[in-house]
Write a protein that binds this DNA or RNA. Structure first.
Lengths: 194, 194
DNA sequence: GTCTATAGACGGATAGAC
DNA sequence: GTCTATCCGTCTATAGAC
């Protein structure tokens, strides 16, 4: 909510339509004319709220990766216990599943999203970098390769699993709970690597 | 290799450059002019080998998803044993890691890739569909939700983990082996869901 | 099999009225 | 805050010579 509630309410409508169309058709195949038509306004109106097409995506990206940064910041200040790891997992799953429209949009437009989001210089590699950091918080960097791999696989797989099952189950809340449970279970440090 | 070795050798060079540029900059931001320049030929020359820009991607997609289809076809004819599951994992990891240039390119251009690949009608949902099928082969559809989730998370997470670690370790073969091991381990059916 | 030249279309962005 | 009108750039794709 930090940046989202800025300016008029039209701004939010533009963002919503943009997410929808960018997801369906891709960033480049969606023209500003199309977005404007869907909102019954003109292209020029969009330029009052956003200074460019890229700026629309940038506003979305900023809000979204901010959530991960918040999670990382929080987690960094916590003791490295099993309970902390479980809580990281819980929050991570919540971000992925609740913001899934934006997440899916970014997922489908990685190439486009990476060109921006950071102005000019920043080669942020949006998720890769943050995923590595989170991996390091679930399994210490000096842990065995197998252990770090497990953490990376689980974090990366959660979003895929969500997208894969989301429309296959009757109760999505139940699915979220199950994903958290499975995620926590898979990142425990049990089995001796035979 | 089924379709790859078609026509002149220039065709393959075009494909190689296309993968590279599509990955770096995205499908839409890469023009045929750019590809042609890199090969020291002209745009028109490309049109001798491919009937359109989309056709270049289509040729790539076809070859790549074919590998997954082959895996699925093979796995479907096997007995559902632990060894079969391990072998599925092994082959899956091999496809993901060996074809990682193409994989990464498709990953970065999902939106573009989904519009094509199947001519006009087919809404193949390239990976989602196939991932579901593979999930069903690792954990029977009547297995518990937790068990199916585990399979989906692991399959989905493998590619993420690969991309995350690929440039972080000295020996990539070792990494592949470790991923296979971890994948097999995570999809075993051990822990009683507390 | 590769070239030059160009058609034809569409997109992002701005100026300026209201 | 939204509109009309328009500029300017770039791109895909084709025609036709060599």
């Amino acid at each position: 909510m930090s940046e989202a509630a800025r300016g008029s309410e039209t701004r939010a409508r533009i963002q919503a339509v943009a997410v929808e169309l960018f997801t369906e058709q891709g960033y480049d195949k969606t023209s500003l004319r199309e977005i404007a038509e869907r909102l019954d306004v003109t292209k020029a109106a969009l330029y009052y709220h956003f200074k460019s097409k890229e700026d629309i995506v940038a506003s979305l990206v900023e809000d979204y990766v901010g959530q991960f940064d918040d999670l990382i910041a929080w987690a960094t200040g916590q003791p490295r216990t099993a309970q902390t790891r479980a809580e990281i997992m819980r929050r991570y799953v919540t971000i992925v599943t609740e913001g899934h429209e934006v997440f899916r949009m970014l997922h489908q437009n990685q190439a486009a999203a990476q060109s921006m989001a950071g102005g000019k210089g920043r080669r942020t590699e949006l998720f890769k970098e943050r995923l590595r950091t989170l991996t390091g918080l679930l399994a210490e960097p000096d842990a065995s390769l197998a252990e770090r791999l497990r953490a990376a696989i689980v974090l990366g797989g959660i979003s895929v699993a969500w997208m894969s099952f989301e429309d296959q189950v009757p109760d999505q809340d139940e699915l979220v709970t199950a994903i958290i449970e499975t995620g926590v279970e898979l990142t425990r440090h049990p089995v001796a690597t035979s």
